[in-house]
């Protein structure tokens, strides 16, 4: 651990200014990921700006939109009556993440900003382009069992570890950001990025940007939604593959489908092709299988994660079956 300065921000503006002024400053909220990274020497901010006193904890339903404050705790959001009733997919995804202790500390904003759990990223002795650009990708020819099958580059095959983010991507959430030039809205599916040649950049925020909340629009998916996470143990493990599935079903016909996968890409992976295929079709296992297969055409596996080529479509089908109750 490298010595650092700790300041507590009392106003949103002063928090943003503090980070704008100091290139090595970082916001800290629950700290469940950042503190680990600091202990391991993966990141070494000289200043952390504690934002937990900012008034960003609320979860409110207004004009058919749900606004989740960036500092709302994962545990609180998961159990919030509005969320449970109108956005069960998000509740399920949150409950599938981490452990009860972590969910009591972790915030909505911090969750989406957590960094990959790729072991090469975490170990400062090993090569990693995300941690140390130009040092190479340790996972590419290494232990890549947990790694991406979609959208990777030869610079980085890491995956995003969040469960919550998969549900938010499926539900077309919008990230509310405040920054140097004022406020802006980023659609969730554009929030995270693929690694390309710049794997050190996880998302489309710029210095000084502060996530202040997430907005969700009312939808017709609440009756048919499921988050299915496949992992090496029943709790407190990152996804091998996870699927957020939400269906708007009329009779047995799918009006609309929303699908996103976790554990397979550098960002929450929306299954737009599968969604389009399913729209207007009966909710049958055959259609689910066909939709999953379509999506897999662009998948590419590495030495230790070939199983995901089977597990991913199987999990899509299972999640859809549970969501559709067929």
């Amino acid at each position: 651990m490298i010595p650092f300065q700790y300041v507590r921000a009392l106003k949103q503006r002063s928090a943003i200014d503090a980070v704008l002024k100091d290139k090595s400053a970082q916001f800290i909220a629950g700290g469940t990921n950042l503190v680990d990274l600091m202990k391991r020497g993966v990141t070494a901010p000289q200043k952390v700006v504690d934002i937990t006193n900012l008034p960003l904890k609320e979860v409110v339903l207004k004009n058919n939109k749900l606004l989740i404050g960036a500092l709302a705790l994962n545990a609180d959001v998961a159990e919030h009556p509005f969320v449970v009733k109108h956005f069960p997919l998000l509740s399920l995804a949150l409950q599938a993440g981490a452990s009860a202790q972590l969910r009591n500390m972790a915030t909505t904003g911090g969750n989406m900003l957590q960094r990959t759990r790729c072991p090469y990223f975490y170990d400062t002795v090993l090569p990693c382009n995300k941690r140390n650009p130009g040092s190479g990708c340790g996972a590419l020819e290494g232990y890549n069992r947990m790694h991406a099958i979609f959208g990777a580059s030869d610079k980085c095959i890491a995956v995003h570890p969040s469960d919550m983010a998969i549900a938010l991507a499926a539900l077309d959430a919008v990230v509310l950001v405040s920054g140097a030039k004022g406020d802006r809205r980023i659609p969730f599916t554009d929030f995270h990025r693929l690694p390309g040649d710049r794997p050190e950049i996880d998302n489309n925020l710029v210095r000084g940007d502060l996530v202040v909340g997430v907005e969700l629009s009312q939808n017709a998916f609440s009756k048919h939604a499921h988050y299915l996470k496949i992992r090496d143990r029943a709790s407190y493990a990152f996804a091998l593959v996870s699927v957020a599935a939400a269906l708007d079903i009329n009779g047995n016909t799918i009006n609309n489908a929303r699908l996103a996968m976790g554990g397979v890409a550098h960002k929450p992976w929306r299954l737009f092709t599968a969604e389009k295929f399913l729209a207007g079709k009966p909710a049958t296992e055959e259609n689910f299988k066909a939709a999953a297969a379509l999506e897999m055409q662009t998948a590419k596996a590495y030495e230790h994660n070939k199983f995901k080529l089977t597990l991913a479509p199987n999990t899509v089908v299972e999640a859809l079956k549970i969501a559709a109750k067929v």
Partner: peptide, 25 residues
């Protein structure tokens, strides 16, 4: 407990990645 044989180094030497049963198991 997995060693990356190129480096002779463990890649899951922590209790998040080296799994022991949790209550739910």
């Amino acid at each position: 407990a997995v060693i990356d044989h190129r480096f002779g180094r463990y890649v899951n030497s922590n209790l998040a990645d080296y799994h022991v049963p949790v209550h739910a198991d």
